[in-house]
Each structure stands twice: as structure tokens, then as C-alpha cells.
Design a protein around this nucleic acid. Sequence first.
DNA 1: TGCGTGTATACTTATATCAGCATACACACA
DNA 2: TGTGTGTATGCTGATATAAGTATACACGCA
Lengths: 110, 110
Amino acid sequence: MSNARLSTELLTLVADRFKALGDCGRLQLLQALRAGPRTVTELVDDTGMGQANVSRHLALLHTSGFVSRERDGLFVRYELADKDVLKLCDLVCGRLEAEVNARRKLVVNR
Amino acid sequence: MSNARLSTELLTLVADRFKALGDCGRLQLLQALRAGPRTVTELVDDTGMGQANVSRHLALLHTSGFVSRERDGLFVRYELADKDVLKLCDLVCGRLEAEVNARRKLVVNR
DNA sequence: TGCGTGTATACTTATATCAGCATACACACA
DNA sequence: TGTGTGTATGCTGATATAAGTATACACGCA
């Protein structure tokens, strides 16, 4: 890391991770998982997305290492892999909030 | 932030930011900007990408708030907007490194 | 072993994204 | 005002991604 120049191969991997987070549906799933582990069915209910969709998005989040899965009988329970994911989201959210506030100030003071 | 449920509108905005980081070329540009401000031409040289490409990617990074721009005569100088971007990249890189090391260990010890 | 329920995947269509080329635009300077 | 250089943008074809439907697969249980 540090200041070393990163190879394009590594950057491609990094880009893939960001791409995995670059979808509203997947972020919804991650948000729903904030509260704790959830089965696919529960996530379908939580998000209102179709089952196939949820399953596909979860698969991608899983191969990207953002969630872990565990079979429980007939169900598969998904869970946030670690807290880094939320750190990433919160960093971006923080930036957004700052921008929104700045913009609001502009509008109010016009 | 905290644990409040985020609206899908906000999540869409967040997703757009992540999407902006979800491209190898754009990450290359951000990496090149680590060293300091750069003109478009310099970034073309640094990255080997086409000029139109570089310009478009920079435009996206700019509207996403990751870089700032400043005209300098005939040139436009781009610069990292803040250190958060690097924090984001480094978080993901850290995760990757950990995985790669784990995988390498598997290969070596097979 | 057969059935029902939960999850994953194949296939399709619609949409988005990317790179390259050509060209328009912005600016400095003769 | 015209010319050259740096930057941005419109257009195009190729590729990737997303969602829906149908269906396959996995598991528990009668």
C-alpha cells in the first residue's frame, strides 16, 4: 500500500470490489444485514426485490468477500463478513451528507 | 448514519459513488494523482490511456466529488479532492492483500 | 422415495458502460 | 483575427450488467 504504484491487475481487483458496492440493491441488502444475519427469504421481504435477484446479488457480495453464508437446514443465512463494509459505506455517506448540507446551505441563503 | 435505515434514494447516490470507483482506469488516475496535481496530458502519459478516455473519466470523478479541477491557462489541472478517496481505496486494498496472502499461502503449502 | 419449500441458476431482453475516433470548444499567442 | 495546442464531447460498436421468468437443485419430512 503506502505510496507504491499499484499494478493494473490489483487495481482491476479493487475496481471489482467497488463495482460490487455500486448497486443500490446490493447496498440495500448490506444495510438489511446491519441488524444481523438474515436468510434469503427474509431479505426478499426486507427489500421487496425478487428472489432470484436477491440470490444473485448475494452471490456477488459473497464472491467479493463482503458477506459470508451458512446453511441452516433448508435456509441459507447471510451475514456481513466484517465491519469494513460498513466503514466503506459510511465514508461515502459522510461525504454525501457533507455535500447535501453544503448544497442546502446554498439554496437557503440564495 | 449510525444504524438508521437509509433510503433507497440515498443508497442510489452512494452506489453511484462506488460505481465511479469501480473502474480500473479511474483508479489508475486516482493513483497517479496521489503524487500531486496533474494536467490531463500528464495523466494521459502516466496511464497510457487515450485522451478522450482520460477526460471522460476525470469528468466522472469530478462530478462524483473525488477530484477537483483548476484551469491553468491552456491546461486543466486535476487534484484529489481529499484524502477520503485514498482511505476508501486503501480499505479495499487491505482486504485484497489479506485475501491474496491467504490464497498464496494455500498455493505454496499445497 | 416422493413432495413441498427455500435457494440458485439458465435464458432472455432492456439498459448501461466503455473505448476509439472525429470533432467541437477554450485558451494563448503571433 | 487566425493558428496551434490542450481539453471536452458527440457518435458508434462492442461488451457488461440488471431484472424477470422459468426451472433446476438442495434439503427436510411424511
